[in-house]
Every structure is written in C-alpha cells, then in structure tokens.
Simulated scan of single mutants.
Amino acid sequence: MKMYMKSVMVDDQAKALDFYTNTLGFVVKHDIPLGEFRWLTVVSADDPEGVELGLEPNAHPASRAFQDALMADGIPFTAFSVDDIEAEVERLQAAGVSFTQPPVKAGGATMAVFDDTCGNLIQLVELHV
C-alpha cells in the first residue's frame, strides 16, 4: 500500500488553485468539473507522478468547523517538505505569503508555518538527515 492522495479543505477552489499553482509552484494534475465544485488536484512540479494534493471544497458544515478550529488554534492542517527552508520562506515572503511561524529548529528538522489564504495553516519542514 502507498499514499496516492491527500487533501486540504479550501474555502474557494479557484482561489486555492491560483495560490497553490502560481504562488507555491505546484502544477495541476486533475481539474474535472463536478457540478458546483471540481475534482481538483495538484502535484509537485518536481514529482508529477507523486502524491496528489486534492483542493477540496469545505462546503460541509463539519469540515468548515474543523478548518476554523484549527486556524483559530494556530494548528497546521498538513505539512510539505522542502530542501532549503530559509530559501523557500524567503521566496514565499517575496510573493506575499504570510508566515505565522518563522523557521524554528526542533530536533532533526526546521519548521515554519504559513497561511494558504484558503482557510489553512501549512507547515514547511526541512529534515536534517
């Protein structure tokens, strides 16, 4: 068994698509209309056959409440790995991304947290192996 896809709930799929592609640098894997919403996934430009990230609408009241609670408590919904966290934070800040936690070393990793503008905090992690 291996991981195929993980999802992040978003308050607006079009806004999320713009942020995750134009700001973060992911590329679209699937964009299939499904009535009011879309089956919308993105992948790393460096690993187009890798794990897909679903940009899921938070239309269900339970998902919206969960998302709001995590944001209010400052808890990241998911994490992305990077090779050079200082460079990535600098690149994203230059693109206007707001960080709620600057890079911090913890054990064998350095972590930072940013706001994805779609209702989530996302953690960046650089592992020191």
Rank of each mutant, 00 (worst) to 15 (best):
F99T: 00
V27A: 12
G108E: 14
D116T: 06
Q67C: 05
D84P: 02
H30A: 11
G107Y: 04
Q123R: 13
H128V: 08
T117F: 13
P61T: 06
V89C: 15
V28W: 14
P102C: 01
K105N: 10
V10L: 08
F26T: 01
V43C: 09
S44K: 05
F26W: 07
A65V: 07
A94F: 02
V51N: 12
I75L: 10
I32L: 14
A72S: 10
A14T: 11
E56F: 07
M9Q: 13
D12N: 15
Y20F: 14
G119L: 06
Q123H: 01
M5W: 01
F99Q: 03
E52Q: 13
V42R: 09
K2N: 09
A72R: 09
F114R: 04
G107H: 04
V97E: 08
D116G: 05
I122M: 11
S81W: 03
I122E: 10
T100G: 05
P33A: 14
T23L: 09
V51F: 10
L92A: 07
A69P: 00
E90W: 01
W39S: 02
D11M: 09
K2T: 10
T78C: 13
D12I: 03
A72N: 09
E88N: 01
V125S: 12
A79R: 03
M111Y: 04
K6C: 13
V10T: 04
K2G: 04
V51P: 07
L40P: 03
L34C: 09
L121K: 09
E86P: 00
D83F: 02
F77I: 11
D115Q: 06
V89S: 05
V82M: 11
L17R: 10
M71Y: 15
L17G: 07
F19K: 06
Y4W: 06
L17V: 04
F66S: 12
T100R: 12
M111I: 13
D115R: 03
E49A: 15
I85E: 01
P103T: 00
V51Y: 12
D84I: 00
A112G: 06
A95K: 15
T41M: 06
K6G: 13
E88W: 07
A45W: 08
A94D: 12
G50D: 09
M9W: 11
E126Q: 15
A94G: 06
L127H: 10
G108N: 13
W39H: 08
E49Q: 15
D47Q: 12
L70V: 03
D73Q: 14
V125G: 05
D115S: 02
